[in-house]
């Protein structure tokens, strides 16, 4: 009973996060200017990280936590590098 409730709830959360990833992919392709694309890429990696955390809850292993932490770190680095590039025209001056 409890297992079923948890499985369905987490499946619903996964579906919602997948929809969010689809929507941000739509904005990534449509975005009129570069800053819209960078913002949607940011949302895309954050949603992927959350999906990984939910997957970790669902399997009951802490293995996915490290992967989510690394995705968050690398995603922040990439987003700030892209923002710097939009601002200055180069990343490392």
């Amino acid at each position: 009973m409890n297992v079923t409730i948890l499985a369905w709830g987490l499946a619903g959360a996964q579906v919602l996060l997948g929809l969010a990833m689809l929507l941000s992919t739509y904005r990534l392709m449509r975005g009129p200017r570069a800053q819209d694309r960078v913002a949607s890429l940011d949302s895309l990696y954050a949603n992927a990280m959350l999906l990984m955390v939910v997957f970790g809850i669902r399997t009951g292993t802490t293995l996915y936590f490290e992967a989510a932490l690394i995705v968050a770190l690398v995603g922040f680095a990439s987003s700030s590098a892209l923002a710097k590039f939009l601002m200055r025209g180069e990343v490392i001056e």
Binding site: L6, A13, L16, L17, L23, S24, L50
Partner: peptide, 18 residues
Amino acid sequence: AGFALYGAALTLLGTIGL
């Protein structure tokens, strides 16, 4: 289950806004 659904729904709302 409630917190996972709530968080996923909030994230989806933010993306719909995007």
